[in-house]
Design a protein around this nucleic acid. Structure first.
Length: 595
RNA sequence: GCACUCGUAGCUCAAUUGAAUAGAGCAUCUGACUACGGAUCAGAAGGUUCGGGGUUUGAAUCCCUGCGAGUGCACCA
């Protein structure tokens, strides 16, 4: 039983003895730094039950606990707040439990399976900063769910078909002169992206030229030769034209090679990939089934719709008059296919930007109307956009922050700073290279994950990401420094893994604070899963590192004269390093042994 | 026009989901290694939580309203 629930039941007993009342809603919160104690019972709500004012209620409960609980060693009352101080023995026991539990932080298996989708890019341009937030979030949430005892399946849907890729194909065909990643030395996804930009440029100039000759804007767009090429390619693609399919496969292949390199650099993985080119027809079938069963309806022109007005939404088209699919059609098919592929999953998490909130509301409602019970367990992990100081990233205005570039820059920055601090003097080249990567990417990931996913956030390219303060490297540094202590302890043959510290007389306040934070870890992991918020883990890891650093600075560990105390301090340090490592792993961030 | 989201220190973010004097980092200023690693620590300064009403013992948090910002409302994806 956790410390808090033990306290809770003791307080409940106190209330029943003192006031002859039973109560199950108790408000316990961590005590503010400025007051003495670790746990605080908020007594305002209680006074209705006790028929006494909050202050008197707090006082009598405090007195009861002091007399009857072996855990409470002191208390004080401020207004309606009962601040409890627990005995050192309680804290030693907490530590003992953590020590004894070799898988602390890994909750017991639930037997449940869950699917999480993230990344899901288009195949016509390279990944950018927004994808970084998406991937880091999705990956982190999947790790958090694993820690909570779920079996997790990580997937993405790759939007590999449609007019967007045909645009890149058309531009390459007309102006590419056979350029390939090999011939140009350009990474595949960037090369295809180059032709997507080329398309846009040519298209615009063709339109404006036609307009200057007196053609109407809309007509000029339709007439644009390059647009006509792209549209024709799309039609050919759908008809299965061999040459078009060949080009499509080739260019998508370039993109996948590029993406894979980027994913590898990011440190994210997937268990299964879904391709829209394989799933878009499934959606159509499902819609036709739904039409038959009367869930959907057909308009005179032949288009198929769903009516969501009774749910406060609008009508939504699902199949065009010509029978072809729209965006949401393939999402219906993909969702059903996934539950078919993984019959044991209880639900799905979709990591997709908040601009698609309406889309997912509609999607889940449709699935529910089609009679899929699991639709209720589909969740849109909706995250805010990453904005630049100038506003939203826009590829047309060249304000997109490229994922590959940004990662490379961060690693370069980490390298510069590390060399400047002379940290690599005793490292092999390989260890140093790994370190630069760990620190650079750690800073980037932490920067993107420490903010509540729901909120939009700002990234200023001119003010590159810090390596000091509330950052990934701060936590990595704390970890590395503890590891130095552990190494020293080991070299002195100090036994600190026994788990028995009963010989230690008492705790320093700084040690108690560290233990307090340490004891919160598993609850934070649960909370992060419940809220789909890696930011909770990031904030926790920072708090733990900060608390530890205060301890480190105030108490010279190896000055301890009592051998038991020395062993305890090393053990405590080691456990902090352990948890920091685990917490950072939940964020997809590695921590070094030295830095 | 309708719907949703957001507005907290100069800047970037927190605030246990309604509790105590609203907390961190960066930037600014002042201090700390003959001890275990200074990518650290201690301290100062910085706030009408966008404005105005209301509910409550208690509001950054809930309700109403005004202002400001963003997003969505395609037979695009």
């Amino acid at each position: 039983m956790s410390l808090e629930s033990t306290l809770r039941s003791e307080i409940q007993k106190a209330v029943s003895v003192l006031f002859n009342q039973s109560i199950d809603q108790l408000q316990i919160q961590p005590t503010n730094q400025e007051f003495e104690g670790s746990h605080t019972l908020v007594c305002f709500g209680l006074s209705k039950v006790t028929k006494k004012n909050p202050e008197e209620t707090a006082k009598s409960i405090g007195e009861y606990l002091l007399a009857n609980s072996t855990r409470v060693s002191k208390f004080n009352v401020v207004k309606g707040f009962l601040n409890l101080t627990l005995s050192d023995k309680v804290w030693f026991d907490v530590f003992k439990d953590i020590q004894a539990n070799s898988s602390f932080g890994q909750l017991t298996l639930t037997g449940e399976e869950i699917m999480i989708e993230y990344s899901s890019p288009n195949t016509n341009k390279p990944l950018h900063l927004g994808h970084l937030r998406n991937n880091f979030l999705g990956y982190s949430v999947s790790e958090i769910y694993k820690a909570c005892g779920y079996q997790v399946h990580r997937v993405q849907i790759i939007n590999d078909r449609g007019i967007h890729i045909c645009k890149s194909m058309a531009a390459w065909k007309l102006y590419g002169n056979g350029e390939t990643p090999q011939s140009s030395g350009i990474k595949g996804d960037h090369l295809v992206g180059k032709y997507y930009v080329e398309f846009d440029k040519r298209f615009k100039s063709q339109v404006s030229e036609a307009v200057s000759k007196g053609v109407g804007e809309e007509e000029a767009q339709k007439q644009s030769p390059i647009m006509r090429e792209a549209v024709e390619m799309l039609q050919k693609w759908e008809q299965g034209d061999e040459e078009t399919l060949k080009l499509w496969k080739t260019m998508n292949g370039w993109v996948y090679d590029g993406f894979n390199a980027t994913y590898k650099a990011m440190g994210v993985e997937f268990d299964k990939l879904y391709y829209e080119s394989n799933t878009y027809l499934l959606g159509k079938e499902e819609v036709l089934k739904g039409l038959e069963s009367g869930v959907f309806f057909k308009k005179e022109d032949g288009s198929v719709w769903v009516d969501l007005t009774s749910d406060g939404l609008d009508q939504k088209v699902l199949l065009r008059a010509d029978g072809t699919s729209v965006y949401i059609t393939q999402d219906i098919g993909t969702a059903i296919l996934r539950f078919h592929d993984y019959p044991k999953i209880s639900g799905q998490i979709y990591t997709v930007g908040n601009e698609q909130e309406y889309h997912f509301k509609v999607l889940f409602l449709i699935l529910k109307k089609l009679g899929f019970k699991w639709a209720e367990h589909c969740f849109h992990l909706s995250y805010g956009m990453v904005d630049l100081p100038t506003g939203k990233m826009k590829s047309r205005e060249g304000t997109v922050v490229d994922a590959d570039d940004l990662m490379a820059e961060m690693i370069a920055k980490a390298k510069r700073q590390t060399l400047e601090l002379g940290k690599t003097d005793e490292m092999s080249e390989e260890e140093a290279t790994q370190l630069f990567e760990m620190v650079g990417l750690g800073a980037l990931k932490f920067f993107l994950l420490k903010v509540d996913p729901k909120k939009r956030m700002l990234f200023d390219p001119n003010e590159s990401i810090q390596l000091q303060g509330f950052t990934g490297p701060f936590i990595q540094y704390t970890h590395a420094r503890i590891k130095a202590i552990v190494r020293k302890g080991e070299s002195m043959n100090i036994r600190f893994d026994s788990g028995d510290f009963s010989a230690v007389q008492n705790l320093e306040p700084a040690e108690r604070e560290v233990l307090k934070v340490l004891s919160l870890y598993e609850n934070k992991v649960k909370e992060a899963a419940r809220e789909y918020a890696p930011s909770i883990i990031a904030n926790y890891a920072y708090e733990l590192a900060k608390e530890y650093n205060q301890f480190y600075q105030n108490i010279p560990i190896f000055n301890a004269t009592d051998p038991a105390q020395l062993a305890f301090r090393i053990a405590l340090s080691k456990k902090v390093a352990d948890i920091l490592k685990k917490a950072m792993a939940l964020l997809g961030i590695r921590v070094p042994e030295r830095m």
